[in-house]
Design a protein around this nucleic acid. Structure first.
Lengths: 151, 151
DNA sequence: TATAATATGACTAAGTTAATCATATTAGTC
DNA sequence: GACTAATATGATTAACTTAGTCATATTATA
C-alpha cells in the first residue's frame, strides 16, 4: 500500500506549480525553484517532470528563462490522475489476464473483489481532490497558523 | 498502492483455514492442502505461515498428522490485521520522524494529510471485513453460481 | 556566441520481492 | 525404537524496482 518517492515528488512538484499558477497563470518556474521547496534531487525530478510533460499535465519552455508550468488549471487536475500516471493503477492487484471473465478459482475471485473495494476506497479520496483543493488547503494553513511554518 | 504476492498468499491461506474452520474448528490442515487450492509455492508459503503463527493468527502442529489451523474464530480476524502484519502500515507514506509535531514544510504537510485520508479510505474497507465475511461470500458464490467454478 | 535552461538516454547502487535450498526438529505410526 | 510425514528455520539467490547519477544533446534568450 505504499506510494514511492517518485509519486510523492510528482505531487509536490505539481503542487508547487499550482501555487504559482494561482499567483500568475503565465509564469514559468525553473526547476531549481521547485527543487528548493520540495527537497528533491534535481536530476530525478527532471525525469518526473518529463513524464508529467509527456502526459500533458505540464508544459515546458526550454532555454534561458525557461522552466515548467501547468498545462491546465489546477481545478481540472485531480491528484488521482497524477498518482495513476506515476504509480500505475490504484488497484492493489491487477487481474493477470486481459479480458478475463471471472477468476479460475472462487477463493481468488473473492480476494479480487476485496481489492476492488479497496481501490474504490482509495479512488473516492484521490479522484475528488484537485490541485486547486490543495492550494486552498495550503492557503488555509499558512493563513491560520503561519507560526507552524519552520524554514 | 500495490499489495505483494506475499500479502495475497497470506490472505488466501487464511481464507482456506477459515473455510476449514467453518467445517470443523478442530481440524488441522497440512500445508499441501493449502497449496493445492491457492496455487502458491510451498516453501514461500511456509515462511508466510510462520509469520502468521508468530503473530498469533494461526497455530501449528508438528510431526506426522500435523499442519495449521486458525488460532481464533474467523469472525474475530479482520483482513486488515493480516495485511498490516505482512505488508506493514496501510498509510502510503509514513512520517519519517517518530513523535513529530507537524511537518517541516506546509507543502509536505498537506500531502501527508492526503495520505492519511487515503489510509482512512483503505481502513474503512479492510478493517471491517473479517474472514467470516469472506467465508460467507465464498458460500454465496459457490451456491448461487457454481457453474462459474472452473477447476 | 555564450549561457542558462530543459531533454534524453544510459547507467548504477541499494533495497525488495519472491522465491529456492539445505537442514533441523518434532510427533505419530509400524 | 526406527521410520516417516510433517513443520521450523536460516542461508542464499535471481529478478525486479526504486531512486537516483552521469553524460550529452538541444534549445532559446541575452
Amino acid at each position: 500500500m505504499k506510494i514511492t518517492y517518485k509519486g510523492d515528488y510528482a505531487l509536490k512538484a505539481m503542487l508547487e506549480l499550482a501555487l504559482r499558477y494561482e499567483e500568475n497563470s503565465d509564469s514559468i518556474i525553473p526547476i531549481n525553484e521547485i527543487v528548493k521547496f520540495g527537497d528533491m534531487p534535481k536530476k530525478f525530478l527532471e525525469q518526473i517532470l518529463l513524464t508529467l510533460v509527456r502526459a500533458g499535465f505540464v508544459k515546458s519552455k526550454r532555454g534561458s528563462g525557461g522552466g515548467f508550468y501547468l498545462a491546465r488549471s489546477p481545478k481540472d487536475i485531480t491528484i488521482g490522475e497524477v498518482i495513476r500516471l506515476i504509480e500505475g493503477p490504484i488497484e492493489p492487484i491487477a487481474c493477470v489476464k486481459e479480458g478475463y471473465h471471472g477468476c479460475a478459482d472462487v477463493r481468488t475471485c473473492i480476494l479480487r473483489n476485496v481489492w476492488q473495494e479497496v481501490a474504490q476506497g482509495i479512488s473516492v479520496v484521490v479522484d475528488t481532490i484537485t490541485f486547486q483543493d490543495l492550494v486552498g488547503r495550503y492557503k488555509a494553513k499558512t493563513r491560520s497558523s503561519s507560526y507552524e511554518y519552520i524554514i
